[in-house]
């Protein structure tokens, strides 16, 4: 029996697909897996696990939260970056925040929306303030208010976007907070009331006078792409060294030396950025200088 051409065509297609599935979909990955499980590669292929006293405590490639159950940083550990993976460093929900560069206006919590949503700018400002407090440095940043939210005004003009200024609201500072500016172009700045519609105001971020290179480094206030970044910049690690040294009752130079030991420089001198692996660093700190209790 001869099949009609269109059917023969699709039958050949199906047989081809099955052939390719066996070769590229089964033989190929299984062969690579077999090679990967050979001695010398197996450690990597299984996730670069770190074992302490016969217990697996980490993968040296995957970051962890070093906080207590309430989310407060544990002082004896060098802290990792903010994470957008699940509740933080969750490998079953990886990813980034996806907030854009002009994500600057919060949805304030109110009766209609009890949780609200923070803009990226406010998150950055709040993290900067918190890290500054924790490490005893100035947490100020451009475009941030002293109370750690985005310094953003909603400016109402007489004719929409032109004409004289009629009203100014500090959009991220919920009443009864004191606005970060008292007046703007001669108009008194109001605090924001949750649930009010400020969508006709021109969103105007205010730079302020914070230094362009704040004491708290950029990686300390931004979430990574994966949410699992095991590394921080050497600058952020050094910033944390005195606090970790105090918590462990050791010398700060000891911590600095360990930081250097866990720093990966640029490969070949030009690939990527220098980074400090926080997971292996903290494991090492625990092993060498355990905290009693």
């Amino acid at each position: 029996m001869r099949l009609p051409p269109w059917l023969a065509q699709h039958l050949a297609a199906l047989r081809t697909l099955l052939v390719l599935t066996v070769i590229a979909g089964i033989a190929y990955p299984l062969a690579v897996t077999a090679i990967a499980q050979l001695h010398g590669l197996r450690h990597h292929a299984n996730g670069s696990l770190v074992t302490v006293d016969h217990t697996v405590v980490a993968s040296s490639l995957i970051g962890q939260s070093f906080t207590d159950t309430g989310g407060k940083p544990l002082l004896r550990y060098v802290q990792t970056r903010p994470s957008a993976a699940g509740a933080g460093y969750d490998p079953t929900a990886t990813g980034a925040s996806n907030f854009g560069p002009e994500s600057v206006v919060d949805t304030l919590p109110g009766p209609a929306d009890p949780t609200g949503e923070q803009s990226l700018l406010t998150r950055v400002c709040a993290r900067s303030l918190a890290v500054g407090r924790l490490e005893g440095v100035d947490g100020a940043r451009p475009y941030c208010t002293p109370d750690g939210v985005g310094a953003v005004l909603g400016v109402f003009h007489r004719d929409g976007v032109t004409g004289g200024v009629t009203r100014v609201v500090s959009l991220n500072q919920a009443c009864p907070a004191a606005p970060f500016l008292t007046t703007y172009r001669g108009v008194r700045v109001e605090c924001a009331r949750p649930g009010q519609d400020y969508s006709h105001a021109v969103v105007t971020p205010i730079r302020g006078d914070a230094p362009a290179h704040p004491a708290v480094p950029p990686d300390a206030v931004t979430a990574s792409g994966s949410g699992l970044d095991p590394a921080i910049s050497p600058a952020y690690a050094r910033l944390q060294a005195p606090r970790v040294a105090r918590a462990r009752g050791i010398d700060v130079t000891t911590v600095d030396r360990l930081i250097t030991a866990h720093t990966t420089r640029r490969a070949l001198g030009f690939l990527g950025e220098p980074s400090v692996n926080v997971v292996t660093l903290n494991t090492d700190l625990d092993r060498r200088y355990p905290v009693p209790g």
Binding site: R81, A96, S97, N98, F99, P101, L120, L121, V124, C125, R141, P142, Y143, C144, G150, R207, A212, H213, P214, P217, P218, D219, V221, T222, A223, S224, G225, S226, D229, A231, I232, S233, T264, G272, E273, S275
Partner: peptide, 13 residues
């Protein structure tokens, strides 16, 4: 500009 780098969503390494 507030952060001081376009590092949101970027891996340290």
């Amino acid at each position: 500009q507030a952060v001081g780098a376009a590092s949101e969503g970027v891996e340290t390494r």
